[in-house]
Simulated assay, not measured.
Amino acid sequence: MRTVRTTGLVTAPPLLLAVAGLVHPRHLTAATAGHWAGLHVVLLPVFPLLVLGLLVPLWGRPGRDADGALTVLAWAGCLGYAAYYTGLDAVAGISAGTVAGTPARGAVGRLFATGDALGRAGVYALTVAALATCSVLLRRHGPRVLPGGAVVLVACWSFVDSHIFWPRGVFTMLGFAVGFGLLTVAASAQTGPRTASPGLTDL
C-alpha cells in the first residue's frame, strides 16, 4: 500500500497537467485570453510539483559521498526548474493572457520570448535533476531503474518546446507520469541493505 500511495503522489502532478493540456487553448487570441490566463493561474502551484517524481525516490538525508553530492545536485536542479518554469507560467501564461485582450496586446510577443527563455532554463535544470536522480538510483538499485529513467529523460527532451499543448505536450506529461511511477516502484523494492532507499518506505 505504501508503494501505491507513493506512486499516486508522484504521478498526480503530471496527470493533472496532461488533463490541463487537453483544455489548453491552441493559440492565444483576444477570444481565448481569459481562458488562457485563468488556466495558468490554476496551474501556478501544479507545475512545481512535477519535481516530486524525482524528490520522492531520493527521500532521506544525503550522505557525504558521491550519492550525497548527486542528491544535492538533484535538489538544486529541482529548485531551478520550480523557479524558472514558474516564471514561464507567470509571464507567458498569466501576463500574456491578461494583456492579449487589451490595447496592450502588442506586448504578447515580448512576453512569449521572455517566457520561452525562462521555460527552457527550467527544463534544462529539470534535466540535470533527472540525470542526477537516475545516477543515484542506479547506484542504489541497479539496472531496474533504467526503464523509468529513460522515459523521464525522453519526457524532459520533449518538454523543452512542447509545454503541455496537445498533442505532444499531453503525451510528454503522460511520459513523466509513467517514468516517475517506474522510478518510484524500482526505488521501493527491497533487495538488500545497500539498495534500500532511505525513508522512502516511510511515506
Rank of each mutant, 00 (worst) to 15 (best):
V152C: 10
V152Y: 05
L153G: 05
G142W: 06
A132L: 12
R139V: 10
A150C: 11
A132R: 00
Y124L: 14
A130K: 05
R140V: 03
A125C: 14
V123K: 01
P143K: 00
V136D: 05
L137T: 03
G142P: 05
P143G: 11
L153C: 07
G149T: 00
T127S: 13
V145Q: 03
C156I: 06
L131S: 00
L146T: 08
L153N: 04
L146N: 05
A130G: 06
C134H: 11
V154E: 05
A130C: 08
G148S: 04
L137W: 04
R144P: 12
V128E: 08
L126G: 12
G142I: 11
A150R: 10
V123P: 00
A132V: 08
H141I: 04
P143F: 08
S135A: 15
T127N: 06
A125Y: 03
R140N: 00
T133V: 14
Y124R: 09
P143A: 12
L153P: 02
W157K: 06
R140H: 01
G149A: 08
V154T: 07
V154Q: 09
V136I: 14
T133L: 13
L137F: 08
L137C: 10
A132W: 11
T127E: 08
L153V: 06
A155T: 03
G149L: 06
A125K: 01
T133H: 06
G148Q: 01
A150H: 07
V152M: 11
V128P: 00
L137A: 08
A155K: 01
G149R: 04
A129C: 07
V145L: 05
L146D: 07
Y124C: 09
V154L: 15
C156P: 12
S135T: 15
L138W: 15
R139A: 12
L146P: 00
G142L: 13
A150F: 10
V123C: 02
L153M: 07
L131T: 04
C156D: 14
R144Y: 12
W157N: 09
A130W: 08
V151T: 03
R140W: 02
G149W: 01
V128S: 02
A129H: 10
T127H: 09
P143D: 13
R144D: 08
W157S: 14
P147M: 01
T133F: 11
L137P: 02
G149N: 04
C156T: 08
V154P: 07
L146C: 10
V136P: 10
H141R: 15
V151R: 10
L137R: 13
A125Q: 02
A129R: 14
Y124I: 11
G149S: 04
C134K: 04
V145W: 02
T127C: 07
W157T: 12
L126D: 12
W157A: 15
R144Q: 09
R140F: 03
A125H: 01
V128K: 06
V123R: 02
V151H: 09
V154G: 08
L126R: 00
R139H: 14
P143T: 13
L138Y: 15
T127A: 11
H141V: 12
A155G: 01
A125W: 03
A150D: 00
L146V: 14
V136Q: 06
G142D: 13
R144H: 09
V154C: 11
S135Q: 12
L138V: 09
V128I: 15
L146Y: 04
T133K: 00
P143W: 07
A150M: 09
V154K: 10
G148C: 05
L146G: 09
R139E: 15
L126K: 01
A129K: 14
A132D: 11
V136E: 05
R140L: 14
C134P: 04
